[in-house]
Simulated scan of single mutants.
Amino acid sequence: MTKRETIFPASRQALYEINRYSAAIRSGDLLFVSGQVGSREDGSPEPVFEEQVQRAFSNLGEVLKAAGCTFDDIVDMTTFHTDPEAQFAVVTAAKEKIFPQEPFPNWTAVGVNWLAGFDFEIKVIARIPQTA
């Protein structure tokens, strides 16, 4: 049986402690990253939507880094949007900066009506690279 290992970035502990969840779980060579939002160090939302999206991707990058991964290791991505039609262009532009060329990860975008004070969330599954 594969043992689960928790992964936490060096910073941004407030949301994990407040809501009692792990940033990511490593199981074998897979990394399951909890939904990342555009939160500041204290757990509060970034108020400007564009900056909230950028911060969510940045926060995701920190979790990936803590596990020895990069954005290139992502195989599956799910994003959550409180107003998909109005937000889609901003999210797509941010995503295209992170994934400028093929192969692109799988992507499912979901419209929701509540994200605990946030307007965007991203969760991923990544394959952890083998170390030499």
Rank of each mutant, 00 (worst) to 15 (best):
M1F: 13
M1D: 10
T2K: 05
E5K: 14
T6I: 08
T6C: 02
I7C: 10
F8M: 14
P9F: 05
P9C: 12
A10E: 10
A10D: 00
S11P: 03
R12H: 14
R12V: 05
Y16V: 08
E17K: 12
E17R: 04
I18M: 02
N19F: 06
N19H: 00
Y21S: 00
S22E: 04
A24P: 11
I25M: 07
S27T: 14
G28C: 14
D29R: 15
D29A: 13
L30H: 07
L30A: 14
L30C: 08
L31D: 14
V33W: 10
V33F: 07
V33N: 08
G35L: 04
G35M: 09
Q36M: 13
Q36R: 13
V37I: 14
G38D: 10
S39W: 05
R40C: 06
R40G: 00
G43Y: 00
G43V: 07
S44A: 13
S44L: 10
P45K: 09
P45S: 06
E46Q: 15
P47W: 01
F49Q: 00
F49L: 07
Q52A: 08
V53F: 05
Q54L: 07
R55L: 14
R55Q: 15
F57M: 13
L60G: 07
E62R: 04
E62Q: 09
V63T: 12
V63F: 01
A66S: 13
A66C: 12
A66H: 10
F71G: 12
D72C: 10
I74V: 15
T78E: 00
F80P: 02
T82M: 11
P84L: 02
P84N: 05
E85M: 02
A86K: 15
A86E: 05
A89S: 00
A89D: 01
V90L: 11
V90P: 00
V90Y: 07
V91E: 03
V91G: 02
V91T: 05
A94S: 15
K95E: 05
K97W: 03
I98Q: 05
F99Y: 13
P100T: 12
Q101C: 13
Q101Y: 07
E102W: 09
P103T: 03
P105T: 13
P105R: 09
N106W: 09
W107Y: 03
W107K: 07
T108A: 03
V110H: 08
G111H: 10
V112R: 11
V112C: 13
N113F: 14
W114P: 00
L115D: 08
A116Y: 01
G117L: 02
F118S: 04
D119K: 15
E121V: 00
E121G: 08
I122H: 07
K123Y: 03
V124Q: 01
I125T: 14
I125V: 15
I128Q: 04
I128P: 14
P129G: 11
A132F: 05
